[in-house]
Computed example of a mutant assay.
Amino acid sequence: MHGPAESGWLLAALCAGTGAYCLLRMRSGVEEQRRTAGGEALMGFGMAAMAVPAAVFAPPAWAWGGYAALFGAVALRALWAARTGAHHLHHLVGALAMVYMAVVMAGTPAGGHAHGTGIPLLTDGLLLYFAGYVLLAGARLVPVPAVAGASGAKGWGDRPELARACRLSMGIAMVAMLLTM
């Protein structure tokens, strides 16, 4: 995304770190968690690639179409998966937001700023959605008392609090990216 280089690098690092952790979560013994972690890893790495400051690396014009196609396919998969659970609707909204940002960036002159080039009502709606998601995800991180008899030995892929923190960081990154639109 276009904007100050420092914030772009921080955003890219946050998203890449989140994507890397999601790859670790793919080692879970629960298939649904592995599938969800794979989709979140793709989102994290895709967001990291889009967040690299344009002053440092301006992707070729065709790259934005590639992002739109990739996340369009992710959106179709999330739409199909939404038949079985509401969490997939969030993945659908996230993938469609990535498609929207890629299309807007494709129409932005190289090295220019995307600010003001998107559809304001759509951008505002996505900002409201992701801001609400961030608040809800943050509230879910508030510690709760441990359940008696709960197993303390969990693998990296089976730690729900870390998965929530991962989703929270991607939600915050999505808000930051949408603010540049």
Results as ranks from 00 to 15, higher is better:
G116C: 06
G155S: 12
A148Y: 08
C15M: 13
A55R: 13
S169W: 11
V104N: 02
W64I: 01
M101A: 01
L162N: 04
L11S: 11
A68L: 08
P143E: 03
W62H: 10
L168M: 06
A68V: 07
T117M: 12
V56Y: 09
I172N: 09
A106H: 13
G111W: 08
P4W: 04
L121S: 11
A153D: 15
A69S: 04
V74F: 11
M174D: 05
H115W: 13
G157D: 05
R25I: 03
M170Y: 07
F71A: 00
V56C: 10
V99M: 09
V99S: 07
S7D: 14
V142I: 15
L14C: 11
A78W: 03
A16R: 08
L168W: 07
A75W: 04
A12E: 00
G138T: 06
P120Q: 01
A139V: 07
R25T: 14
G116A: 00
G17W: 01
E32G: 13
A97P: 00
L11N: 08
V134L: 09
G157E: 08
Y67I: 07
M26K: 07
A63Q: 05
L14W: 10
L70F: 10
A82M: 06
G132I: 00
G29W: 09
Y100K: 02
G46L: 04
M170C: 05
P145Q: 00
A102H: 02
G3A: 03
G19T: 03
G65Q: 00
A51S: 12
A37L: 08
E6M: 12
G3H: 01
W80L: 11
R27N: 13
R167P: 04
R34D: 02
G3D: 01
G107R: 10
L11F: 04
A148E: 14
R159L: 15
V144E: 15
A37N: 02
L76C: 14
Y67T: 05
A110E: 14
L14D: 10
P60A: 10
Y21L: 02
D124P: 05
E40H: 14
E6V: 14
A102T: 01
A163F: 13
G155P: 08
G111E: 02
F57E: 03
M174G: 00
P53L: 03
E6T: 14
